[in-house]
Design a protein around this nucleic acid. Structure first.
Lengths: 222, 222
DNA sequence: GATAGTAGAGAGTGACACTATCTGTTACGG
DNA sequence: CCGTAACAGATAGTGTCACTCTCTACTATC
C-alpha cells in the first residue's frame, strides 16, 4: 500500500507518518522508485502501537522510541525486553531523597513479602514508592501493607493476561502484545477501579435529602 | 509564611508559585502590605494537590484547574463534585465512531451487569471503551467480559479507600482526599499490576538456558 | 541605609508534536 | 503523451504548554 492508504488505515495523517519516518519511529517502506515506496501490515501495526503508547500510555515520542527499540532488538531476551519496556513507562520525576528512600525500602519489603521476581532495579519500584510518598503526604497511608490485598488478584490477572500471548507468534508480535497489553489493560483496570469508586461514593455521599441524579446508564437513557 | 517558605515547603519555585497565583490555580495569600502576603497550610496543601494531579495524574494545568474548581465549589454535592473531578481525569481524544459506539454499548452492559451506580454520562465509560477498542485492534480481546473478574476486588478496595476519608473532616479536605486518592491509589494499583506482570513474564519467558539475571531486589542487593 | 526579599505584570524560553511548503519525480486516467 | 495527482525527502514554521526571566515599585531586616 502507499502512504495515503497507510494514513487511512492507521488514522495518522500523511504528514504525521512522514514525521514518524524521519524520526525513525516507523521503519521505511520498501522503495520501488526514488519517490515511491510500499508499506505493509507491519507499518499499520507499528503506527497503531505508537498511537496506543502515546495516547493511552501518555508516553512522549522519545519514550515511545525507547519502547520500540526494546521491542525490535532481537538480541535481548523476551523477558528482559519486556522489563525494559516497562521501565520506560515509569515517568522520571524529581524525588526528594529524604522521604523517597524510606518509601523505596518499604516497596522492596513489599516485593520480598509477595515473592515478586523483579529485576533488582526495576523502575516499577519507583512508581510505587512515588504513590506511597504522595499518600503519606496527604495523610492517607502509613506503609505498603495497604496494598497487600491487591496482590493476589493482580497475580491471577497478570498470568491470565500473559496467557493470551500465543507461544507460536513471532517474537516481535509477542512483544507488541505484551507491551500494548500492559498499557491498555492498565487503563481498563483503572476504569473498573474508578467505576467502583464512583459507585462507592454514591453509596457513601450520594443519596441525600432528594433522590440522587445518578443511576445505571441504561436505566437513565431514553 | 512568606513565599520563600511556601516554596521550600511545597517544592515549587517562587516563580512557579507566582505563575500559579496568576493563573488562579492557587488562591492569593493574605495581603499585609502592597508587596507582602502571608501564606498558610491551605496553600501548601493546594500546591501539593496541583503537583500530584499534574505529575502523578498527568493532567494539564487547565484540567487541574477544572478539578480544583469542583473541589472548591461548595454548591455542588460531594458525590457530584467527585464525579466531575473524575470526568476531567479522562482524556479527550479522537474516537472513531464506528468501532467506538459498539464498545461503549458493551461498557454500558458491563456497568449494568455489575450494578455500578454511575452518572449516565460518566466519562469513565469512554475510558473503558477506549481500552476495549485498543485491545480489540490488537486482537487480544472480544468484549468487556474479560474484565468481569476485576470487579469484585475493585469494589472491595474502593469501599476501603473511601472509608479512609473521615466523616468529620471539612468538605474541602474530603474532596482533596478523594481526588488525590483516586489518582494516587490508581498509580499504586498499576504498579502492583506491573509487578505481577513482570513476575509472570519471568515465569513464562524468563528462566531460559542459563540462570536468569533476575531476582527479588533484596536478595540481589549487596 | 544598604541589602535582600516581595508583589504584580509582561515578555521571553525551550520542549514537543506536529504542519506547511518546497523540489524533484513518478503514476495514471483520458 | 499530456495533465494532474500523489509521492519521497528535506527544511522551515506553527501552536501549545508550563514555566522562567525581567522589570518596577515597595517593604522588612540587619
Amino acid at each position: 500500500m502507499k502512504v495515503a492508504e497507510l494514513s487511512a488505515t492507521s488514522g495518522a495523517t500523511v504528514a504525521t507518518l512522514k514525521y514518524y519516518l524521519r524520526e525513525g519511529l516507523l521503519h521505511p517502506g520498501h522503495a520501488t522508485a526514488v519517490n515511491q515506496a510500499e508499506y505493509d501490515d507491519t507499518h499499520v501495526r507499528r503506527v497503531r502501537l505508537i498511537r496506543a503508547l502515546q495516547e493511552l500510555g501518555k508516553l512522549g515520542l522519545a519514550d515511545v522510541a525507547l519502547v520500540l527499540a526494546a521491542v525490535d532488538d532481537e538480541s535481548i531476551e523476551l523477558h528482559a525486553a519486556f522489563g525494559l519496556a516497562q521501565d520506560v513507562m515509569v515517568p522520571n520525576r524529581h524525588r526528594d531523597p529524604d522521604t523517597f528512600t524510606a518509601a523505596l525500602a518499604d516497596v522492596d519489603r513489599f516485593v520480598l513479602r509477595h515473592d515478586f521476581h523483579l529485576r533488582p532495579d526495576a523502575a516499577v519500584r519507583l512508581m510505587m514508592a512515588d504513590a506511597i510518598v504522595a499518600l503519606q503526604t496527604f495523610g492517607g497511608l502509613k506503609d505498603s501493607s495497604a496494598f497487600d490485598r491487591m496482590v493476589e488478584s493482580a497475580k491471577t490477572q497478570a498470568a491470565a493476561e500473559l496467557a493470551t500471548v500465543p507461544d507460536s507468534a513471532p517474537r516481535s508480535q509477542q512483544m507488541e502484545l505484551s507491551v500494548v497489553g500492559t498499557v491498555v489493560t492498565e487503563i481498563a483496570a483503572a476504569a473498573v477501579r474508578r467505576m467502583a469508586l464512583e459507585d462507592a461514593s454514591w453509596r457513601r455521599f450520594g443519596p441525600g435529602a432528594r433522590p440522587p441524579a445518578v443511576c445505571a446508564p441504561a436505566a437513565c437513557a431514553p
